[in-house]
Computed example of a mutant assay.
Amino acid sequence: MQNTIGNIGLALLRIAPSAMLITHGMPKFQKIITGNLEFGDPLGIGAAPSLFLAVIGELICPILVIIGFKTRWMAVPPALTMAVAGFVHHAADDFGTKEKAFLFLVIFLCIILLGPGKYSVDRR
């Protein structure tokens, strides 16, 4: 019984935050589709590469985390994206502004450490 509850908890930990992060990645993806590559450049690699990396970290990888495919590896880009958002992009902002990025960072770090649980493609 406890193992089942733990696996349901891991599924919720994977699915809910990933679905929430997708809502941030979708507008960025739509920018790419429309050809608007204007975006911040927090790491100095250029606006377009930063936008593409943000889409990978906020849309592509969270979709794979939801289904539980290569979960630990797919949680790394969202964690890195949120680290950049919290520590670099919002560095000068108050904690309330960067708090959401830090919450996502901690959640994806937990997914990296705990894995996907039983209810995932990885465990099939």
Rank of each mutant, 00 (worst) to 15 (best):
Gly40Phe: 09
Ile45Asp: 05
Pro62Tyr: 07
Gly25His: 09
Leu59Trp: 06
Ile67Cys: 12
Leu37Met: 14
Ile66Thr: 04
Glu38Gln: 13
Asp41Ala: 09
Leu43Trp: 11
Leu64Gly: 14
Glu38Tyr: 00
Ile32Gln: 01
Phe29Gly: 11
Leu64Arg: 04
Pro49Asn: 11
Phe69Leu: 15
Met26Thr: 12
Met26Gly: 00
Asn36Thr: 04
Ile60Ala: 14
Gly57His: 00
Glu38Lys: 11
Thr34Lys: 14
Pro49Val: 13
Glu38Leu: 07
Ile32Pro: 00
Ala47Ile: 04
Ala47Tyr: 04
Phe69Tyr: 15
Phe39Asp: 05
Ile33Gly: 00
Gly40His: 11
Leu59Tyr: 02
Gly25Tyr: 06
Leu64Lys: 09
Gly57Asp: 02
Glu38Val: 14
Lys28Asn: 08
Ala47Val: 06
Ile66Asp: 02
Phe39Cys: 10
Phe39Leu: 07
Ile56Ser: 07
Thr34Trp: 00
Pro27Cys: 03
Phe29Thr: 00
Asp41Gln: 11
Met26Arg: 01
Gly40Met: 14
Leu59His: 03
Phe29His: 01
Phe52Ala: 13
Thr34Gly: 10
Leu43Asp: 10
Glu58Ile: 00
Lys28His: 12
Ile66Phe: 06
His24Arg: 01
Thr34Ser: 15
Ala54Cys: 06
Asn36Arg: 10
Pro42Phe: 10
Ile32Ser: 01
Pro62Val: 10
Lys28Gly: 03
Ile63Ser: 08
Gly68Asn: 09
Gly25Phe: 04
